[in-house]
Simulated assay, not measured.
Amino acid sequence: MADMPVAVTVSGRERALLRAVDAGRCQFRGGCEPVLLVDGLACADSSVARRLVDLGLVAAPDTSVPVQPATATDAGRALLTTG
């Protein structure tokens, strides 16, 4: 039996942050625990950023790179186009 895709439910806050990532407004600052920057400021809710990465909606950052763009995955972009 083939694997069935799992529906992902995100909150309004998570969706807003995913939209900011998809719009190119976000970067990751590297380190042992990467920090998501939105418009140059640290995201106040790091748990939302971590959840988007854990769900595969935002690409995981390379912790060895000091600053890098945050990017939405194909799954993240698809979620934004649905409702």
Rank of each mutant, 00 (worst) to 15 (best):
D39Y: 04
P69M: 12
V38E: 13
D54F: 11
S11Y: 00
A42S: 14
A20K: 13
T73D: 11
A49G: 07
R51C: 01
L79E: 00
R50M: 06
Q68T: 06
A20F: 05
S64K: 15
A23M: 06
A2K: 07
T71A: 15
R15G: 02
L41M: 06
R77H: 09
F28Q: 08
V53M: 08
T81Q: 14
C26G: 10
L41G: 04
A42M: 03
R29S: 06
L52A: 03
A59C: 09
Q27Y: 13
T71P: 02
A60N: 06
P5R: 11
R19Y: 03
R25P: 01
G56Q: 05
T82Q: 07
A72F: 11
A44W: 03
P34L: 10
A60E: 14
V6L: 01
P61V: 07
G40L: 10
T63V: 13
G12F: 00
S64Y: 12
Q27H: 15
A75Q: 11
A7E: 14
A60H: 09
P69G: 09
V58D: 07
R29P: 01
G31H: 08
D62Q: 13
V21C: 08
A59V: 12
G56V: 05
C32W: 12
V10I: 15
V53T: 05
V35D: 08
D45M: 03
R13T: 11
G24Y: 13
Q27P: 00
R29F: 04
L41H: 06
M4S: 08
E14Q: 15
L37T: 08
P34D: 06
T73I: 08
V21N: 09
C43A: 11
V8S: 00
L17M: 03
A70C: 13
L41F: 03
L17Q: 06
A72Q: 12
L52H: 05
L52R: 07
R15Y: 00
L80D: 12
G76I: 01
D45W: 04
F28P: 04
A78K: 13
L37A: 06
A78R: 15
T82P: 00
T9L: 10
A20S: 15
A75F: 01
A60R: 13
P66Q: 14
T9K: 08
E33S: 10
G24D: 08
D3C: 00
P69K: 11
G76T: 02
P69W: 11
V48M: 03
A23H: 08
L18M: 01
M1A: 15
P34C: 07
G12V: 05
A20M: 14
P34M: 09
S46Y: 06
L37V: 09
D39K: 00
D54P: 01
G40N: 05
L41P: 00
T82H: 04
A2E: 02
V21Q: 14
A2R: 09
R13C: 00
G30A: 07
R29T: 12
A42H: 07
A70S: 14
T63A: 12
